[in-house]
Amino acid sequence: MPRKERARHRTAAGGPRTEEYLRRVTSSSRGRGPLYRLYINRLRRHLTPDVVPRHVAMMIDGNRRWARQLGYASAAHGHRAGAAKMRDFLEWCDDIGVQVVTLYLLSNDNLRKRDTQELSDLIEIIAELADALSRERDWRVLHVGRADLLPADLARVLSEVSERTRGHTGLHVNLAVGYGGRSEIVDAVRSIIAKHDEEGGSLEELAASLTPEQIGEHLYTGGQPDPDLVIRTSGEQRLSDFLVWQSAHSEFYFMEALGPDLREVDFLRAIRDFATRDRRYGG
């Protein structure tokens, strides 16, 4: 980015953390001009309902790197820009007919390893994002993760958001916060054991009757379709304990763009790529 443009970003960073600032700070990566829109429309026309994934999972990565590259002293600027981009991302998904989106926002590892100030900023940003998403369109917003591991204020906001949107019938948005894939499986098994014990069954009966479908029903995402497509930004190619069980047969798409730099054209190319794959479901 040119020096003058970086300077404008730094100046904006010193002002109020408004939605207008977040939109402005990511505008340079959205793409502008008639040729860009023409290409976007062309990509959209080729995405018929039968090739659009029902469930897209997003691992937004690179927010801190984005902030460093622009000369910000705090990673919070990157996390805020990434959160703003996720609102765009959800709109793109909704517009092409995706039914479920899961956003990986805060892992159990993040809760243990992040710098105290960065974690505090990130928790505030997630709370603001969750509240904003609950007021968008007719989206159903659900927290998936361990509420007991979260600060009380964030857990309260996520609970309120889930309750506020309970009757909504639009895009289903899972917010993976305080989330870990292996911990989710452990919690599912514990839930199955507890239920079986309440019904008076023996361990031998449980061992004989336990199935993958039964475990799936007790996951945080129980009753939802597994993700067809998992996307990760920033060039990293690892799962990072995200939807470990659910992604057993998912397709993966890794892109170089840092989270806040994600463009609609990048997303549509990922969907186009998904549409060309021969899904074998483990075969």
Rank of each mutant, 00 (worst) to 15 (best):
E204L: 11
E205A: 15
G181V: 07
E198F: 07
G201I: 13
R156D: 14
G216H: 10
A155V: 00
R164T: 04
L203R: 12
P151H: 10
H143I: 08
G178N: 01
D153H: 11
E198V: 05
P212Y: 10
Q224C: 09
G201M: 13
G235N: 01
R182N: 15
L229Q: 01
F242Q: 12
R146T: 10
G167Q: 14
V230F: 00
G200D: 09
D228C: 00
E213T: 14
R190Y: 10
T211R: 14
R156Y: 08
L229W: 06
L158V: 03
D153P: 02
L243F: 07
D153K: 10
A155L: 06
D226M: 07
R156A: 15
Y220N: 04
V189Y: 08
V177C: 01
A155G: 02
I192H: 00
S240D: 02
S191D: 15
S159G: 14
E184R: 03
L171Y: 05
A207K: 10
G235P: 03
V141C: 12
L206A: 10
T169I: 10
H143S: 06
R190E: 13
D228F: 06
S240Y: 12
I193Q: 03
E236A: 10
H218E: 15
V141E: 08
D241P: 11
S162A: 15
A207I: 03
V161S: 07
S159Y: 02
D197G: 08
R156H: 15
L158K: 09
V244D: 06
P225N: 03
T165P: 12
E199V: 11
R156F: 08
S209H: 13
A207S: 15
L171R: 05
Q237T: 07
D148R: 14
T211F: 12
D187M: 01
E199Y: 06
R238D: 04
G178P: 02
H172Q: 14
D187A: 14
A208G: 14
I193G: 04
S162Y: 07
